[in-house]
Simulated assay, not measured.
Amino acid sequence: MEILDEFLDEDKLFKSCKVMGILKNNRVVLEEEPEQDSLYDFNVYEKWDEGESGLSKYIRKHGYSDEAETERLLRAMADSESGLYEVVDTDKENYIIKLKAISDSDKSIQLMDLSLSQMLEPGKLIFARLTHLENFSMTSGIAFVFRENHREYLLQRSKKLIKKAGSGDPSADRFIAFFYLNRSDGMKTMLQSVE
């Protein structure tokens, strides 16, 4: 929230909405409440604003904390990336989801997530931004969930949407493409708040 409070004024918000294609007649058009989290995620992590993200501006201005744990988290957040993953297995008791990256079937990821671990079943596909820590990974707070039989469609359609997005940043274009794929083909999910 500190990043959003400091680096997302009304002007930047409207510009980011325009880049995402959700500004219509000078109004922000979100179809559902969780899309607000997608907008915030886009502004924190994607480099749509002159090649910088809100996170990179925050780190440039404030540096890394003197606390080792905070520094590790900020560095991991800066290295995070979004992608499409297949759920291989879930351990509901320990809140762990084993993922396989669609782009690299040899890459296995242990995702810890309280909500997703309870609702996802093997075979489902998720598009998420993962932050990799020492022993596990976590999402940035958003995840778009798709049915397993949508894999080929998602891969083909996302290529077209990525070309159409044209933000100037490949990661931002990928995020925008899957944002729209989630609107049209995503499974509705309700994630619980964690305090």
Results as ranks from 00 to 15, higher is better:
F42T: 06
D9H: 07
V145K: 01
F144D: 08
R147D: 14
M1G: 15
S53I: 12
Q192Y: 08
S103A: 15
L13D: 09
R129A: 08
A101R: 13
F14E: 13
G51N: 01
D9M: 00
R147L: 15
S140L: 08
S56E: 07
S56Q: 05
G123L: 10
I142G: 12
K57W: 06
D5C: 11
L125G: 02
N135C: 13
S137T: 04
Y95W: 11
I59P: 02
G186P: 03
I59E: 02
Q118D: 09
C17G: 13
M77W: 12
L39N: 02
V88Y: 02
Q156M: 15
E86F: 02
K100E: 11
I102H: 03
R75Y: 09
K61L: 06
I3G: 03
M20S: 02
F144T: 03
I97D: 01
G54W: 00
D169G: 10
F127N: 11
S117T: 05
I109T: 10
D11H: 06
I109V: 09
D5M: 08
F14H: 12
F7G: 03
Q36Y: 13
G63A: 05
E6Q: 15
E35F: 10
L13I: 05
L130K: 00
I142A: 06
L73Q: 13
E52V: 13
M20D: 07
M190K: 14
S38P: 01
L191M: 14
H62V: 12
L116F: 01
E148V: 10
D173L: 10
N25T: 10
M187T: 14
W48M: 08
I3Q: 03
K47H: 12
Y153H: 09
I97H: 01
V29H: 07
K12T: 11
A143P: 07
V87C: 04
Q192M: 10
K188N: 07
V145Q: 05
E81P: 04
K92A: 12
M138N: 00
M1D: 14
W48D: 06
R157K: 10
I3Y: 02
H150K: 12
L155S: 07
M77E: 06
A177E: 00
I96L: 11
T139S: 13
Y40F: 15
A68Y: 05
